[in-house]
C-alpha cells in the first residue's frame, strides 16, 4: 500500500534527521527506533494486497479459498524477526548509553571523541 510506504519512508527520514541532528545519545537511539518503525511499516506495506485479509484460516476464511483472499504472509514473518532484532539492538544501545554515561556523566555524543584520526 503506497500510502503506508510513504509514511514508512517519512518516518525513516525523520528518524535519520533526528539521529543526525540530536546530540543526546538517547535521542539518537530514539531516532533509531523511529527508523526501525518506519522500516517495519514499509515491509508490511509491501505484503499488503488491497481488500484481502490476514492469512489465518478459521471459520470465516476457508482453506480452499485462501489463495484469493489473503495477503502475503512472508513480509509479516520477516517483520516479526526485524522487530525482535530491533529490540535487541535498542537494548544494547541503551546499555552502551548507560555505560558511557557512567564514564563521563554525560550523554552528549560530542563528549566521546577521544579516538580520532
Amino acid at each position: 500500500m503506497t500510502l503506508v510506504s510513504i509514511i514508512g519512508f517519512v518516518l525513516i527520514i525523520v528518524g535519520l534527521w533526528g539521529m543526525l541532528t540530536q546530540n543526546n545519545i538517547i535521542k539518537i537511539i530514539i531516532g533509531f527506533s523511529i527508523i526501525d518503525t518506519g522500516i517495519h511499516l514499509l515491509i508490511v506495506s509491501i505484503g499488503y494486497i488491497k481488500g484481502k485479509t490476514a492469512p489465518i484460516i478459521d471459520s470465516v476464511l476457508l482453506k480452499t479459498d485462501a489463495v484469493n483472499q489473503v495477503v502475503d504472509p512472508i513480509p509479516s514473518a520477516l517483520v516479526l524477526t526485524a522487530i525482535v532484532i530491533g529490540l535487541a539492538v535498542t537494548a544494547l544501545m541503551l546499555v552502551y548509553a548507560v555505560n558511557l554515561y557512567q564514564r563521563k556523566q554525560s550523554l552528549d555524543i560530542n563528549d566521546f571523541e577521544e579516538l580520532k584520526w
Partner: peptide, 14 residues
Amino acid sequence: LAAPDVAMTEAAIG
C-alpha cells in the same frame, strides 16, 4: 494491513 501478528508484536515489543 491485515497483519495481526505484526500488530501484536509491535504493540508488545515496539
